[in-house]
């Protein structure tokens, strides 16, 4: 059902956890749908210096969260904004069709975190 790469990220998720003093936080999905994820970012010199996630959901939801943190880490905010849902799925060697829509929310969570950062930039959180 899942690619080996998806399973590998599910088994050993990268960058799992929270950043207590995050510069931006993005949450998408909700528990009613079965998938919910929060992405935390720390920004330094316009780059994503640190990134963490927390996810409630299926194997695909957890693997895409892990993958998006890998793709975004070290990128400029402009580069990170360009990371799309299909980039995440492609980097995982594809996702089952039925999961593409419901569980592939990680890029949205990343974008929400960046938006949150930009909205609060310069203001004390």
């Amino acid at each position: 059902m899942y690619s080996e790469k998806v399973m590998e990220h599910f088994r050993n998720p990268r960058n799992m956890g929270e950043i207590p003093d995050a510069d931006g936080i993005g949450t998408v999905g909700n528990p009613v749908c079965g998938d919910m994820m929060t992405v935390y970012i720390k920004v330094k010199d316009n780059r994503i210096d640190d990134i963490r996630f927390k996810t409630f959901g299926c194997g695909a939801a957890i693997a895409t969260s892990s993958m998006v943190t890998e793709l975004a880490k070290g990128k400029t905010l402009e580069e990170a904004k360009k990371i799309s849902r299909s980039d995440v799925a492609d980097s995982l060697g594809g996702l089952p069709k039925v999961k593409m829509h419901c569980s592939n929310l990680a890029a949205d969570a990343l974008h929400a975190a960046i938006e949150d950062y930009e909205k609060h930039k310069g203001t004390k959180r």
Partner: peptide, 26 residues
Amino acid sequence: SFIEGESILLDLDMKGVAASSGSACT
């Protein structure tokens, strides 16, 4: 509470155990 059935099934499967879930994700 707080976790989803398909990911529990995958974790169980990695340890060799087959069960099932009523989660939407399955």
